[in-house]
Write a protein that binds this DNA or RNA. Structure first.
Lengths: 243, 243
DNA sequence: GGAATAGTGTCTGTTAGACACTATCTA
DNA sequence: TAGATAGTGTCTAACAGACACTATTCC
């Protein structure tokens, strides 16, 4: 329940005279892990830090949550600033709240995962194009095993995000969120392979996702020579798999 | 990677002169949903609000996160205050960050789930015993379909928690966290039944959880008359099921 | 025709719900 | 012995990985 609670007059009077106490407060940011499939590889958007601390390290984009803005709205705003995309799949990941995460001040970060289709992306991400970069995720993960590249606790945040994606790919629609409206079976499989970082069999992906797909009636010629064209599919939004 | 990064001297100097700007900041609380099995029923700990707003409504216990305290530590502190338990299973649930959640001021709440064994609980929960109450969860959920009982957005938080527990019970160890060190198969099944709010078959629970259990060698006489005693088990902490 | 991928159908091992049946205890 | 729950074993349907085999395209 809970639709429009009737606020008793007594309570209304209390509220009129209430002023928030001046606690010593942490700052709150919304950080956003933007994933996209680019050139058949899963990529994540990172920005290079221009100043201290962690100067020249790469960081997950984020920004402070406004005092009258929901945390989710802050994440959407951040996404818009970085990718110029208004609507995208957005999911809260986890809240990272250790003191000393940021040596400057106490910051609590609510991390979000955004999945965007490369086709939706408009040009120029942000102002300084040179400071923003798409990293191929699996290459990055490998590199992180031996090198420190990410600022703050952002490596931990990235690993948390990957675990989430891997865990959810089989029973949710996240794979489709990374594809354009129309796609082939092979493209869909590539999303699975990139997220799970394994080789899969096209045939099993077909079977598992078929009920959620609609054949558009069109075929697409393949990049490869001597090859039968693929059926073009659309995601059936009305289908919900149990969970 | 990321163990002990060497902070360059240049960066250290920057930090020495950095002072956090005075942004207008939301307050952050750690709210904690404490679950326990009491009298064969899953219960949640709620406190009755003594003041406005939502006077006399029931609320999930919570408190402000200290400026030098991790959010998780704040949750542990809150748990200790309410139940007098030091160590318990604690898991971050979700962060609720809409403005107007609390009519007094902007509050962002990081919600945690705590699972405690009734046997570990010491007496007296908090100061005013009369203000703290254990609610049987499934009865409460039913009541919430027709009545507003919970303060703020706490009904939504509760539903999120229940979904999480139901989703994780089959592939994690949360059921065991609600039981004392030693327990019978029937007690374990009762945890499953309470969380899922369904009737299950003992025999299937036995099969599914067997690899994670250790038979203590002891038997326990049953409450019911004319009945064969149950084997007493312990949770095998070393066993990790894939996920 | 041959190379190459698209797509179908099937085999198999695993898993989860259901339940028949046996085991063991106490009044 | 009867009543009751403990616990074993098995049937079955759903599912997922593997792969044999067919289909279709272009050079």
């Amino acid at each position: 329940m809970r639709k429009d609670r009737i606020v008793p007059q007594e309570e209304q009077e209390f509220l009129n005279h209430y002023s928030p106490k001046d606690y010593d407060r942490p700052s709150v940011t919304a950080d956003i892990l933007v994933f996209s499939m680019i050139d058949k590889k899963l990529h994540i958007l990172l920005i290079k830090r221009k100043g201290h601390p962690y100067k020249d390290y790469w960081a997950i984009p984020g920004g402070f949550v406004g005092i009258n803005e929901s945390v989710e709205d802050a994440a959407y705003r951040e996404l818009k600033e970085e990718t110029n995309i208004d609507n995208a799949y957005l999911e809260q990941l986890y809240t990272f709240g250790n003191p000393n995460r940021d040596p400057r001040m106490r910051v609590i970060s609510v991390a979000y995962i955004a999945l965007v289709s490369a086709s939706k992306m408009k040009e120029s991400a942000g102002d300084d194009a040179s400071e923003v970069c798409w990293f191929p995720v699996n290459d990055l993960l490998e590199q992180l095993e031996t090198e420190d590249i990410l600022a703050f606790d952002h490596e931990e945040i990235l690993h948390t995000a990957i675990s989430r994606l891997r865990g959810k790919i089989h029973y949710t629609d996240i794979a489709f969120q990374l594809l354009p409206k129309e796609f082939t079976m092979r493209e869909l499989m590539e999303v699975y392979e990139e997220i799970l970082n394994t080789k899969l069999r096209l045939t099993n992906i077909i079977r598992d996702t078929a009920p959620r797909l609609i054949f558009t009636g069109e075929y697409r010629k393949n990049d490869v020579v001597h090859c039968r064209p693929s059926k073009v599919y659309t995601f059936n939004k009305d289908y919900f798999k149990k969970y």
